[in-house]
Simulated assay, not measured.
Amino acid sequence: MRTVCAVVLVFEAIVIGLAIPIAIQLEGVDPAVAGGVWGGMAVAALLLAGLQKRTWAHYAAWALQAAFLFTSFMISGALLVAIIFGSLWVIGVIMGRRVDEIRAVHAAHAEAAEGEEGAVTAPGSQTR
C-alpha cells in the first residue's frame, strides 16, 4: 500500500508545483503566497512520499490531500485536479491494502508448505 501511495504523492508534487505559475499568472496570486502555499505542499508531498513506511507520514499525507483540496479553490481548474488526486489516493489505499493482504496470505501459504516439507523429511532420514 505504501508504495502506491508514495507514487501518487510524487506525481501530486509535480502537479502542485506546476500550479504555482498558474496561480501567479492567471489568478494574480502574490508570488510569495503561491510559492509558500503550493511550493510548501509540493515539498511536503515529496518528503511524505519518501517517508511512507512510517505510519505518521501516511496520516500526514491524508492531511495533505485535504489541504490540496481546500487550497484548490484559489486556482481555477485545480479543484478537478485535487479531486482526481484525492480519488487516486483513496484508490491507492484500498488497492494497496488488498495487495498487502494477498501477499500476507501467500507468505503464510509458503511458510506452511515449507513447514510441511520439513515435517515429511525428518532430520537424520535419507531421501533419494
Rank of each mutant, 00 (worst) to 15 (best):
V15W: 09
V15K: 13
V15A: 14
I16F: 06
I16N: 09
L18T: 09
L18R: 13
P21T: 10
P21H: 11
P21L: 10
I22T: 11
A23R: 03
A23F: 09
A23W: 09
I24M: 12
Q25K: 14
Q25C: 09
Q25I: 14
Q25M: 11
L26N: 13
E27M: 15
E27R: 14
V29M: 14
V29P: 05
D30C: 04
D30Y: 00
D30E: 13
P31G: 11
P31L: 12
A32L: 13
A32F: 12
V33A: 12
V33Y: 13
V33P: 00
A34F: 06
A34D: 07
A34C: 05
G35F: 03
G35Q: 05
G35P: 03
G36L: 04
G36K: 01
V37F: 02
V37E: 05
V37H: 04
V37K: 05
W38K: 07
W38P: 09
G39A: 04
G39L: 06
G39W: 05
G40A: 07
A42S: 15
V43R: 14
V43E: 10
A45Q: 12
A45H: 10
L46R: 09
L46P: 04
L46G: 13
L47Q: 08
L48H: 13
L48S: 11
A49I: 02
A49T: 02
G50R: 06
L51H: 01
L51R: 10
K53F: 15
K53V: 12
K53E: 13
R54G: 09
R54C: 04
T55P: 03
T55D: 14
W56Y: 14
W56V: 14
A57D: 07
A57G: 01
H58N: 12
A60V: 09
A60E: 03
A60Y: 06
A60H: 01
A61Q: 03
A61G: 13
A61R: 01
A61N: 00
W62H: 08
W62M: 04
W62I: 10
A63V: 14
A63L: 15
A63K: 01
L64R: 07
Q65E: 02
A66F: 14
A66G: 10
A67V: 11
A67M: 15
A67I: 11
F68A: 01
L69Y: 15
F70Y: 12
F70E: 00
T71P: 00
T71M: 15
S72G: 07
F73A: 12
F73M: 03
M74F: 15
M74E: 10
M74N: 08
I75N: 10
S76D: 15
G77I: 00
A78P: 02
L79E: 03
L80D: 06
V81R: 04
V81G: 01
A82I: 04
A82C: 05
F85K: 02
S87P: 00
S87A: 12
W89P: 02
V90N: 00
V90P: 04
V90I: 15
G92A: 00
V93L: 10
I94Q: 02
M95R: 05
M95K: 04
M95Q: 01
M95E: 03
G96M: 02
G96F: 03
R97W: 03
R97H: 05
R97K: 08
